Amino acid sequence: SRWTEEEMETAKKGLLEHGRNWSAIARMVGSKTVSQCKNFYFNYKKRQNLDEILQQHK
């Protein structure tokens, strides 16, 4: 299923807060499964600069 802007923003916040904790990110997004969140990261990594966001994760 397609990702809305809102879901993407929430997933990015999740990456920032939780790093690669996909289940925590899935809980934040609410409408996507753990594997969908993981796939989002790998599919949108380049397009959305997700690696940069991940590097900011403490």
Results as ranks from 00 to 15, higher is better:
residue 18 H to L: 08
residue 47 R to M: 05
residue 38 K to V: 05
residue 18 H to V: 07
residue 16 L to P: 02
residue 46 K to Y: 04
residue 15 L to N: 06
residue 20 R to Q: 11
residue 51 D to C: 14
residue 11 A to E: 05
residue 8 M to D: 05
residue 20 R to K: 14
residue 27 R to P: 01
residue 13 K to T: 04
residue 9 E to F: 00
residue 2 R to V: 09
residue 18 H to F: 08
residue 36 Q to L: 13
residue 9 E to G: 03
residue 11 A to Q: 00
residue 34 V to S: 11
residue 55 Q to V: 06
residue 52 E to P: 07
residue 33 T to D: 05
residue 20 R to V: 07
residue 51 D to R: 15
residue 23 S to A: 11
residue 30 G to E: 14
residue 39 N to C: 04
residue 23 S to G: 12
residue 38 K to F: 02
residue 53 I to K: 10
residue 21 N to D: 08
residue 54 L to H: 05
residue 23 S to T: 12
residue 31 S to F: 01
residue 13 K to C: 03
residue 20 R to W: 12
residue 16 L to W: 11
residue 4 T to I: 05
residue 36 Q to W: 13
residue 15 L to V: 04
residue 38 K to S: 02
residue 23 S to L: 14
residue 17 E to P: 01
residue 47 R to Y: 01
residue 33 T to F: 15
residue 39 N to P: 01
residue 6 E to W: 00
residue 6 E to F: 04
residue 2 R to S: 11
residue 25 I to G: 00
residue 35 S to G: 11
residue 27 R to H: 05
residue 45 K to W: 03
residue 18 H to W: 11
residue 44 Y to G: 03
residue 18 H to D: 01
residue 41 Y to N: 00
residue 53 I to R: 09
residue 42 F to Q: 13
residue 8 M to A: 05
residue 42 F to Y: 15
residue 37 C to D: 01
residue 50 L to N: 08
residue 27 R to D: 11
residue 50 L to T: 11
residue 10 T to K: 14
residue 55 Q to I: 04
residue 3 W to L: 09
residue 8 M to Q: 07
residue 27 R to Y: 03
residue 4 T to D: 02
residue 9 E to P: 03
residue 20 R to L: 14
residue 40 F to R: 03
residue 26 A to H: 01
residue 54 L to P: 08
residue 13 K to Y: 01
residue 57 H to M: 01
residue 42 F to K: 15
residue 58 K to Y: 15
residue 55 Q to F: 08
residue 48 Q to R: 07
residue 52 E to M: 01
residue 43 N to D: 11
residue 47 R to Q: 08
residue 2 R to Y: 14
residue 22 W to K: 01
residue 14 G to Q: 04
residue 14 G to Y: 06
residue 32 K to G: 00
residue 25 I to R: 05
residue 24 A to H: 03
residue 49 N to W: 02
residue 10 T to L: 15
residue 27 R to G: 08
residue 4 T to Y: 01
residue 44 Y to L: 10
residue 31 S to K: 10
residue 48 Q to C: 07
residue 23 S to D: 15
residue 3 W to P: 11
residue 51 D to F: 00
residue 49 N to P: 12
residue 11 A to D: 01
residue 40 F to C: 03
residue 5 E to W: 06
residue 57 H to L: 12
residue 14 G to K: 07
residue 13 K to W: 06
residue 29 V to C: 05
residue 40 F to G: 01
residue 28 M to R: 13
residue 29 V to S: 00
residue 44 Y to A: 07
residue 58 K to M: 15
residue 29 V to F: 04
residue 34 V to D: 04
residue 41 Y to W: 13
residue 16 L to M: 08
residue 31 S to L: 05
residue 19 G to S: 09
residue 7 E to C: 05
residue 35 S to A: 13
residue 2 R to C: 06
residue 37 C to V: 15
residue 23 S to H: 13
residue 41 Y to S: 02
residue 52 E to Q: 12
residue 43 N to F: 09
residue 2 R to A: 11
residue 45 K to F: 09
residue 25 I to L: 06
residue 15 L to D: 04
residue 13 K to E: 04
residue 3 W to S: 13
residue 53 I to E: 09
residue 23 S to M: 11
residue 44 Y to P: 05
residue 7 E to Q: 03
residue 4 T to R: 03
residue 42 F to T: 08
residue 24 A to I: 04
residue 43 N to A: 11
residue 55 Q to D: 08
residue 42 F to N: 13
residue 30 G to D: 00
residue 44 Y to C: 02
residue 30 G to L: 14
residue 22 W to M: 03
residue 44 Y to F: 13
residue 16 L to S: 08
residue 17 E to V: 09
residue 24 A to G: 01
residue 3 W to I: 09
residue 36 Q to I: 14
residue 52 E to C: 08
residue 57 H to W: 10
residue 20 R to T: 15
residue 9 E to W: 02
residue 7 E to V: 10
residue 11 A to Y: 15
residue 14 G to N: 03
residue 58 K to N: 04
residue 28 M to W: 11
residue 3 W to E: 09
residue 3 W to H: 06
residue 46 K to A: 11
residue 20 R to Y: 02
residue 30 G to F: 13
residue 9 E to K: 15
residue 6 E to K: 09
residue 34 V to W: 11
residue 19 G to T: 09
residue 34 V to I: 12
residue 4 T to A: 00
residue 4 T to S: 03
residue 22 W to D: 02
residue 16 L to H: 05
residue 49 N to E: 15
residue 26 A to C: 04
residue 42 F to I: 13
residue 25 I to A: 03
residue 47 R to H: 13
residue 33 T to A: 09
residue 5 E to R: 07
residue 8 M to R: 07
residue 14 G to T: 06
residue 52 E to A: 14
residue 36 Q to S: 09
residue 7 E to T: 04
residue 24 A to L: 10
residue 46 K to E: 14
residue 4 T to L: 00
residue 6 E to Q: 13
residue 17 E to F: 08
residue 57 H to N: 04
residue 51 D to V: 02
residue 28 M to Q: 13
residue 42 F to M: 13
residue 37 C to S: 00
residue 45 K to E: 10
residue 22 W to G: 03
residue 18 H to I: 07
residue 32 K to W: 07
residue 18 H to Q: 07
residue 10 T to W: 07
residue 38 K to M: 05
residue 38 K to C: 06
residue 22 W to R: 00
residue 43 N to E: 14
residue 48 Q to S: 11
residue 17 E to W: 05
residue 49 N to Y: 06
residue 32 K to Q: 00
residue 42 F to D: 15
residue 37 C to P: 00
residue 40 F to E: 01
residue 45 K to S: 06
residue 45 K to L: 11
residue 48 Q to P: 13
residue 50 L to D: 10
residue 14 G to E: 00
residue 40 F to Q: 00
residue 48 Q to M: 11
residue 22 W to V: 03
residue 55 Q to G: 10
residue 18 H to N: 07
residue 48 Q to G: 12
residue 48 Q to K: 15
residue 45 K to Q: 03
residue 38 K to D: 00
residue 16 L to K: 13
residue 58 K to T: 06
residue 41 Y to I: 15
residue 11 A to W: 11
residue 34 V to T: 12
residue 8 M to S: 02
residue 57 H to I: 15
residue 50 L to S: 10
residue 25 I to C: 01
residue 19 G to I: 14
residue 36 Q to G: 09
residue 55 Q to T: 08
residue 13 K to F: 03
residue 29 V to T: 02
residue 14 G to D: 00
residue 19 G to Y: 08
residue 29 V to E: 00
residue 8 M to H: 09
residue 16 L to V: 10
residue 10 T to F: 07
residue 10 T to V: 10
residue 26 A to D: 01
